[in-house]
């Protein structure tokens, strides 16, 4: 690891990843956009597109406002079978550290449990993230989930 990070920032970074997973797994969609900067990028992209240089992503948002619109959609407009999500996230791998800006990669697996059904592996991959220090603490300026599970089991309603 060539990048350097102070202990306090490292601890905050670990806390950010843990809090993010905890919030999403709890289904607190209104809090989810608060992990991001106003002009953030949030993408969920099949590995195929990522590796072949195709720009299409399954979800592709370019602002905190778009994340709020998604949260509204989940609650009010997208008819779906409700399900639980459970993230298991590996330790963040620091790719680059600048003053108040960190490029981070982390492996993840998301399990899906539909009500009264068996738990299945829903989506696995890695996130490619840019985390920046803001007055309110560390925020994601960019979160890209590059997923190996290119065949989505029917639909993707909730954010990873």
């Amino acid at each position: 690891m060539s990048a350097a990070i102070g202990f306090e920032d490292w601890q905050a970074l670990i806390q950010l990843y843990a809090d993010y997973a905890g919030t999403v797994d709890a289904g607190h969609w209104e809090q989810w956009p608060e992990f991001f900067t106003d002009d953030c990028v949030y993408r969920v992209q099949p590995r195929e597109n990522h590796e072949r240089g195709f720009p299409l992503a399954t979800l592709s948002f370019e602002s905190k406002g778009m994340l709020k619109d998604r949260a509204y959609g989940i609650r009010e407009t997208l008819f779906h079978d409700p399900y639980y999500q459970r993230h298991v996230v590996g330790l963040p791998r620091l790719l680059r550290a600048d003053e108040g800006r960190y490029e981070v990669e982390a492996n993840y697996a998301v399990f899906r449990t539909k009500l009264s059904q068996l738990t299945t592996v829903y989506n696995v991959g890695r996130s490619l993230d840019v985390v920046v220090r803001m007055p309110a603490g560390l925020k994601f300026a960019r979160r890209e989930f590059i997923y190996d599970s290119e065949m989505i089991p029917n639909s993707m309603i909730y954010p990873l």
Partner: peptide, 11 residues
């Protein structure tokens, strides 16, 4: 111009 793929399995 290809922009990319999405795949889903629908039961």
């Amino acid at each position: 111009k290809i922009l990319g793929y999405n795949r889903q399995r629908i039961p």
